[in-house]
Each structure stands twice: as C-alpha cells, then as structure tokens.
Design a protein around this nucleic acid. Structure first.
Lengths: 129, 129
DNA sequence: CGCATTCTACGAATCATTTCGTATAATGCG
DNA sequence: CGCATTATACGAAATGATTCGTAGAATGCG
C-alpha cells in the first residue's frame, strides 16, 4: 500500500531531459535543446515534442507566462532516481539493492570524500536498527 | 579505449531473460518460459523469439546437441550488470556512481550483514589508494 | 507405423518511443 | 508596418521492442 500515486517510470529520452532540467533548473525548450544537442544530435522540434508529451503525462509542469514556456520537473529528482533504481534492482539484481550498490561502488573511482559519505550513511543506517 | 568489444545494453525483456538464466543456470526455452510466465503473462513463442534474437545479437550462446537448445549467457552476470549500472549512472546520476550507490542504500532495508559487506568493500577501496 | 506433442524458425502484427516536417502564431527590429 | 526569427502545436513517419500465429521438423509412445 503506497501513500503516493504510483510513479511512472520515464523513458530513456525523458530521463535525458529530466537530467538537463535537474542540472540547469527550470528551462525553456531551447535551453534544453542547446544542452542536449551538444551531447547527441537531436532536432529542436524533437525536444519540443518530448517535453510536450512529458507535460501531458505529468512528468513536468510549465510556466506559460512568457512566450517560451519554462519547464520544471514535477517530481523531486531523488524520487525519479529512486524509481529508476527500483526498476533496475528488480529487473537485474533480484530485488537486492545492496548488490546494486556493491557493484556500483566497486571498480569505480570514487574520491575519499565520497567513500566517507557512504560510510557516514552506513553509520546512520545501522543506528536505526 | 576499451580492451573488450563494446558491450551492448540488453533491452528490458532481454534483461528479464538473462535474470532467469542467472538464477536457473543454462536452460531451455521452456524452462525460461515456465519461470517467466509465473511472473507475468507471456507466450511461449514470444520467449523463444526473444531468445533467438539474443542469440543472433550474441547475448547468449546455445547448445544444440539436444532437440531443445540449452541457452547460456555469453557475458558474465557482473559485466551485464555493470553495463546497466553505467547506463543509468550516465543517464540519471550525472556520471556519479557513488550517488547512485548512496541512493540505492538509503531507505532500503539492508541486513546488518549486507551493510558489513559494503563496509568491507569500502575498506578495500581505500586501501588501494 | 501413425498420431499427439514439443521443438525451432520465421514472418508479420502490434505497440511504444523517437523523430521530424509543416502550419501557424507571437515577437522584435529596421 | 513588414519581414526575419523563434515559438508552439500537431500529425504522422521512422525506428525499436515485443508479441504471437503458423508451418514444418523431431520425438515419443501406444
């Protein structure tokens, strides 16, 4: 039983766009387009259409005060990330989030600060037992 | 520059099938079908077709000695998982694997043993500095 | 042997996602 | 004002993933 409405998993392209919005903050289609287009070739109206669809789906809101609408994610970044993680954990890690964490940590160059951050989280988790 | 050929990211259905193979070991289409069909409704020939496509793509091998071919993953489980994690990290975590790890660990009920396992990994990682 | 069962192969429908062309409205500037 | 530029909206093609029907070959059993 969940208290919130089930959050739908965004498609790959939708995640790409959310990522830009997370990084840039509320943005116009053009701004998102400019950013995305640096990483991979994509047309302006393609981005526009995607964002319109996301608006219809309720993945983003938009402010229509100015001619160029300004889009913002509707869900918190962490919530969307959680949805994506849960899906991957379920599908490829037999439901075990810690296995995913283990795999993500190993062999990836993390700074000492980042490792410390994780330690800190572990301490926190154990306290709560 | 990678030493190995670029590993293609399996589709969702393909990951589902790989998951079954990881769990059951080398299996026939029917075995995979039986298992998968318990979780979600899916037709036998659908599974067959998927596995045939995976064979063509080089995601799995198969032993054709017996009439019912026996399929096995071609890549190590950990490698495939790594591919999936990398993709998600890139797409939704701004390239930061440790952020994904943090998110995966927090709020998920992990056993003390699992937490210890992660600590142990951290120790290991820090030693290598 | 002859039939029911179980396989593989394969084409093609269906469905989801991504892509973009075109129409048209708003804006800004010389 | 009139034109170039930049928006949105929208339909629909293109692509990718999933699904399944059907055909025909192998197997096993009475």
């Amino acid at each position: 039983m969940r208290s919130k409405a089930m959050e739908q998993k965004p498609t790959n392209s939708e995640v790409d766009i959310l990522s830009v919005l997370w990084r840039l903050g509320p943005s116009s289609v053009r701004e998102v387009y400019e950013d995305m287009n640096q990483r991979r070739e994509i047309g302006y109206t393609t981005v526009l259409k995607l964002m319109q669809i996301m608006f219809e789906k309720g993945l983003v809101t938009r402010n229509e005060d100015s001619r160029a609408h300004i889009y913002s994610p509707l869900q918190a970044q962490a919530d969307t990330q959680r949805t994506l993680i849960d899906d991957l954990v379920e599908r490829a890690f037999g439901g075990s989030a810690h296995k995913l964490a283990l795999n993500a940590l190993s062999s990836k160059k993390a700074t000492p600060e980042e490792l410390a951050e994780i330690r800190s989280l572990l301490d926190h988790l154990e306290e709560q037992k």
